[in-house]
Design a protein around this nucleic acid. Structure first.
Lengths: 205, 205
DNA sequence: TAGATTGTTAATCGATTAACAATC
DNA sequence: TAGATTGTTAATCGATTAACAATC
């Protein structure tokens, strides 16, 4: 175990392991091996052992890994052994879907507010939330000390929204707008763009 | 230029370049450099030149790349110089959002049918589509020779849906269900799982 | 004990970067 | 022409794999 500086590519695989282990756990499975987990997620057993061993000796020779134990450890490593409050900006179709999404529960996240700049949407209900005006965004993020946000506004508005979020203290952004956004080095961005994902596959067809 | 076997990691960056170039083009910009494009997408100029040069000599010393020309080439390489028909399975909130999503137009994709196994949803309208029963899925995919599908069903149903899709001839799947699915080697899968994307960032907070 | 599987090492493989001649 | 920027090479850096001693 050497906790120096873990490569980001390893960090990116941990949520995949965590997700698979959560599924196994739901099925009542209590133990797994790097071999078995690897078959589930499509990653070699050697790589899984190497990845996990970066953080400690979580397995047992001969028997493999205790799923509840490894779940705890991975949640702790990824800091999702708590619940993060998330701000959602954009109350369109995708925003609606996210506001009502059940999949954040038990994975460490909870949306707590929804914003839009469209006055016809402000005040309306989206899931269990009342849409607030964009002008309230900054204060809310600061007051509640929110660190995470999701952007589901149209592409031309995304950079402006990102700038406001960054200025308000947001440190991680999940961007659904199909455009690259520029943020300071200490702010993390992940992109979800279905067309890009599809384009990555059509190359091979 | 050596068209041997392009690494998948390069293919994965091409949609990002394509997206950025499309934005520049919309703004009326006609020319760019590896330097400028790199600043937009957060990738080094050297890497962009290297990636692009895998496919041909598309730039000019001194002036850089013609955006319309590079757009054409990238679309051709990624095979999105045409329109791919896509089947959507799952008419929940995410399915709704995708069915109504305007972002596929001009990026090479068009949803042509929506399926669900919930009899209360079958026959209902989702965007401009009428939801069809899952039992019709296989025939439809075969008849229309559909190669691409998106899965937006709950996790426990995703593997079954994937199996049906694969058996019907689907070769690329965009999976929104938060679970790894197993498919044959010649079928491509991409995952969209907001919780996983967020977990990848909380590590750094 | 015998069998199974980890954690880790060393070797291999692949990706990124820096540098620069070529040339627009 | 002078300045800018490509495409490509070689060097560096990083990731993956194979193998196996340790040990449950």
């Amino acid at each position: 175990m050497y906790t120096d500086k873990i490569p980001d590519i390893i960090i990116g695989r941990l949520p995949v392991y965590l997700r698979a282990l959560q599924r196994m756990s739901e099925k009542g499975i209590k133990t797994t091996s790097s071999q078995e987990l690897g078959e589930h997620v499509g990653i070699s057993a050697a790589q899984i052992r190497k990845d996990i061993s970066q953080f400690g000796e979580f397995g047992k020779q001969g028997t493999g890994y205790s799923i509840p134990f490894l779940l705890d450890k991975l949640r702790e490593i990824l800091k999702v052994d708590r619940v993060w409050e998330v701000a959602l900006v954009g109350a369109g179709d995708i925003g609606h879907a996210l506001a009502r999404y059940q999949g954040f529960t038990d994975r460490g996240f909870r949306i707590i507010c929804v914003f839009d700049n469209d006055s016809s949407k402000v005040g309306a209900k989206v899931g269990s939330f009342t849409v607030e005006d964009m002008s309230k965004l900054s204060d809310k993020v600061r007051e509640c000390n929110i660190r995470l946000a999701m952007i589901t506004v149209p592409a031309p508005a995304a950079q402006d929204v990102a700038d406001i979020l960054v200025k308000s203290g947001i440190k991680a952004i999940l961007n659904y707008a199909p455009i690259s956004i520029n943020v300071p080095n200490d702010v993390h961005v992940q992109y979800i763009d279905p067309a890009s994902h599809l384009q990555r596959m059509t190359y091979y067809l």
